[in-house]
C-alpha cells in the first residue's frame, strides 16, 4: 500500500469502550491524516457512532485516548463539526438561526457570520426558507439545514454520521459533490460514516472497514482514484465489489 506522508490529524490509541458488560470498541488504533477524507463502513451496531461520541467527549473511553493534533480531543479547543445521525436542527430556531448557532458559540463576529451564512444558504438552496422553522419543512430539508450548519463552521475536522441516509438519489449526488468541494476548498479533515458502499468508494481517499462487535479494524483500504469519480469506471466497480466481498462476513 502507498505511503501517506501527511501529518497525523487524529490519532486513536488503544481505544476501548464498554457499556457495562457489552464490549463495543475493542482496542482500536488508527490514524487519520491531515486533510484526509476517510469513510468508515461497518455493520449496524458495531460502534461507529460510539467512536465519534468518544472523539467529541460525549462519551468517555473506557481505555485508550484520542488525540487531535497531538492533544487529547476536546471540542472546546478544536474546531469540530458533527452531523449527527438523528435529526438535530433546533426546532425553536429558524433555518438562518440554526446556521448561525455554532458560529455564535465560537464568538465569530457578526459581519463574518452573516456573510458565511448567506453563502451557505445559497449553496444548500435554503434561501427561500431562511425564516421558516424546521418543523415546517420536510425531513430531507431539515437534514440540509444540519449539513449547512456544519459546513458554515468551516471546520477543521468534519464528522458526518450517515448524513445522507434520508436523501433521494439526486440530492445525495449533489451533496456528495458538495462535501468533496468543501473538503478541497477548506482543507478540512473529514470522517464520514456510511452504510452505502458506493457512497464510500465515491467519496473516500481511504475506507476503514470495521468488524462486528467487539469491533476492531478489519481493513484499511486506499481508494486510488482521482476526484471527481465515475461510478461506471471499471476500477470503481472493482473497489466496490471488493468492499462488498469484505463485508459479506458480517
Amino acid at each position: 500500500m502507498e505511503r501517506d506522508n501527511r501529518e497525523v490529524k487524529v490519532r486513536t490509541e488503544n481505544l476501548t469502550k464498554q457499556f457495562g458488560d457489552l464490549l463495543v470498541l475493542d482496542n482500536i488504533s488508527f490514524d487519520v491524516k491531515k486533510n484526509e477524507f476517510l469513510c468508515v463502513v461497518g455493520p449496524t451496531g458495531c460502534g461507529k457512532t460510539t467512536f465519534l461520541n468518544c472523539l467529541t467527549k460525549i462519551y468517555t473511553p473506557s481505555k485508550g485516548e484520542i488525540y487531535i493534533d497531538g492533544e487529547p480531543a476536546d471540542p472546546k479547543r478544536h474546531n469540530i463539526s458533527f452531523v449527527f445521525q438523528e435529526p438535530s436542527a433546533f426546532p425553536w430556531l429558524t433555518v438562518r438561526e440554526n446556521l448561525e448557532f455554532g458560529l455564535g458559540v465560537k464568538k465569530v463576529d457578526k459581519k463574518e457570520i452573516k456573510s458565511r451564512v448567506d453563502k451557505i444558504l445559497d449553496l444548500m438552496g435554503l434561501k427561500d426558507v431562511e425564516n421558516a422553522y424546521p418543523r415546517e419543512l420536510s425531513v430531507s430539508v431539515e437534514q440540509r439545514i444540519i449539513i449547512g450548519r456544519s459546513f458554515v463552521m468551516q471546520p477543521d475536522l468534519l464528522l458526518m454520521d450517515e448524513p445522507y441516509g434520508q436523501m433521494d438519489i439526486k440530492m445525495r449526488f449533489y451533496l456528495e459533490d458538495e462535501v468533496i468541494r468543501l473538503w478541497k476548498e477548506l482543507g478540512s479533515t473529514v470522517i464520514f460514516i456510511t452504510h452505502n458502499i458506493e457512497e464510500a468508494v465515491y467519496l473516500a481517499e481511504r475506507v476503514l472497514i470495521l468488524t462486528n462487535k467487539p469491533t476492531t479494524v478489519k481493513e484499511s483500504l486506499k481508494i486510488d482514484l482521482p476526484h471527481p469519480r465515475n461510478i461506471a469506471d471499471p476500477k470503481f466497480i472493482q473497489y466496490r465489489n471488493y468492499i462488498t466481498e469484505a463485508i459479506k462476513w458480517w
Partner: peptide, 27 residues
Amino acid sequence: RTYINVARTFGASETEIFRKVGIPSSL
C-alpha cells in the same frame, strides 16, 4: 440529548448549553 450534544460539539460551555438549548427547548 442530541440537541445538547450538538451544542457541546460546537464547544459550548455548560451554562451556555443551559441558556441556549435547555431553556428554549423547555419553553
